[in-house]
Design a protein around this nucleic acid. Structure first.
Lengths: 335, 335
DNA sequence: TTGAAAGCGCTAACAA
DNA sequence: TTGTTAGCGCTTTCAA
């Protein structure tokens, strides 16, 4: 590999001049620039980013810590983030956390190794008890799931309002016994708790009873788990005419499970999901859902991170961006 | 940030000794090691990877160039690759090519910047005409799609045999007019051409006529395109009782499109896909498909790349790994 | 407008 | 077993 020194020698200038040409500094005479460019081309010179990184203290790479890229939602989110990052001349390195707290915390402390200029983190396993882990000396943007009070920027979904709208939609379509499939519900500000709040609010708005038996707590947000639970709900005689699933993946499983036990959707049970993953439009029946505009979320998250990167001081004021959602009505709730 | 020098000073040793401790070199007295570890902990020392990279000429990061992580197949593949890479202590940086030749070639030449120790490339747009682009001075492993004769390792799918098995399965289930949905078919060794060859072989094996009208050439392998084409095929009166889709994504669209025009699957038309993406099991009807064992492909691809990384000379002998496939029979072909 | 010197933080090679 | 020296390739600073 040719170095900047080799190019300098070949062009009969100093390394600094070559550097100035590479970085488009103004004060280079045109003839000199030409000479240097010619030498660079001739030697097939490429900057050594490791050297530049060391010198500049930046890497041009951000970390993206998400549960995993093998799920429709996070896959689509990651794609949008990579695409947005390219526009800021940033590369994206994926850290799969498997939704495990320990891996999320590890991502936070490992990024410190200065491999990444910043970190986008979608926490699922960690909670507000771990807020102090966010006190790191590089930019972090929290993405989507868990809303933690912390010293970092934040891109969130309107979890409560959107869930309320989803549940309200089921009520509008005539459902009176609406189940919710979610994770453990508690005081934490995690997806399940927030979306359950929206669900509860909608029921109360309509004067419907909140039957605890209709809150179905899932261990995992997988299609398999959704399908199995749906079958159990029918076979146990729970009695429900609507199901709000906190993710589309779960909802896809539910559609499958209901088909297994020959329950008609939407005639007997109406189903709505959350995320608007691409395939939800093409299922049979197609899946009603909430579109949280993850394109805008990705765009904003990267913009916030890019803004912080390269600022000597991490600003005190932290920004919170809540995306807009829309209700997407499809066949699973009667079109 | 504390440097290795700071730690050395604090522990009363030289920087080299600290380095030896960090890298688990044997010749360090236990008491010395303790002292150093204590100082490291006290100063909250973290290695500066940029410096280490510069010194070692390695980055510990590999590039993964795939069309995009927002598709079930590539999302699952990427997840498997990231997981495998972690075991080799490698990070993965995603380059989304959008299946465009220019981006694939760019990935090949940009990795040269020494940001990546090696590159995993799933070429879709480039062809054997670009084989010389593979002559780069770092390890490259070609993954899955396009089989190019070139100076690089290679992890491939058994495209022809698997497609033959898929088509054969449709024939076994009684189909006589079997359509194939694929990309442009030519002399190239790309997915579409190879899978079309398998399709043709199966028809010939069974003594069925290969009707060119049944080869449906798609612009894009998307659900939307699949759905639209399926509707057109029915409405145009093409006449077909089976459909082999070269990807599950396409097949999901076809299932949707057939539902739109009220064609029953599998009673009137049987459908089979390729890839065995996770959701294919949970569709209604569930999708028969080919499982190319992409877990094994990912594992092997990373292993090959890791083996090459750090060898001074890139070995001349190149390895070719072809994964095993299995036929997964589900409802869309009659269970 | 150009160049010389210095050094980012680390580790290979060698010396003690 | 530990330390010294040198240098990876680049860019900041300052001088010419």
């Amino acid at each position: 590999m040719a170095t900047i020194q080799d190019v300098a020698k070949a062009a009969g200038v100093s390394a600094m001049t070559v550097s100035n040409v590479i970085n488009d500094h103004p004060n280079v005479r045109r003839a000199t620039r030409e000479k240097v460019l010619e030498a660079m081309a001739r030697l097939d010179y490429r900057v050594n980013l490791a050297a530049r990184n060391l010198r500049k203290g930046r890497t041009g790479t951000i970390g993206l810590a998400i549960p995993g890229v093998n799920s429709a939602y996070y896959g689509e989110l990651a794609a949008a983030i990579v695409a947005a990052a390219v526009r800021y001349d940033l590369r994206v390195s994926i850290e799969q956390t498997g939704a495990l707290r320990e891996n999320e915390l590890a991502a936070l402390s490992l990024s410190r190794n200065r491999l990444y200029d910043g970190l986008l983190l979608s926490p699922v396993g960690m909670g507000s008890a771990h807020a102090e882990w966010l006190n790191v000396d590089y930019p972090v943007v929290i993405l989507g799931e868990l809303i933690i009070e912390g010293p970092v920027d934040h891109v969130a979904m309107p979890n409560v309002d959107a869930s309320r709208a989803a549940t309200r939609h089921l009520i509008d379509r005539g459902c009176r016994r609406i189940a919710i499939l979610c994770g453990p519900v508690g005081e934490e500000v995690d997806v399940s708790s927030l979306r359950h709040t929206g669900y509860r609010q909608a029921l109360e708005d309509a004067g419907l009873r909140v039957d605890p038996a209709l809150t179905q707590t899932m261990e995992a947000f997988t299609m398999r788990a959704g399908a199995q639970r749906a079958r159990e709900m029918v076979e146990s005689g729970l009695g429900f005419d609507g199901a709000f699933c906190v993710t589309d993946t779960l909802a896809m499983g539910v559609l499958r499970g209901l088909a297994d036990v020959e329950v008609q959707v939407p005639e007997q049970v109406k189903v709505i999901g959350f995320d608007n993953v691409e395939s939800s439009e093409f299922l049979v029946p197609s899946l009603s859902t909430i579109d949280p505009d993850h394109g805008a979320m990705a765009e904003r998250a990267v913009a916030l991170l890019a803004r912080r990167i390269g600022q000597a001081e991490l600003p005190q004021d932290r920004e919170e961006f809540v995306s807009h959602f829309s209700l997407v009505v499809r066949e699973s709730t009667g079109g």
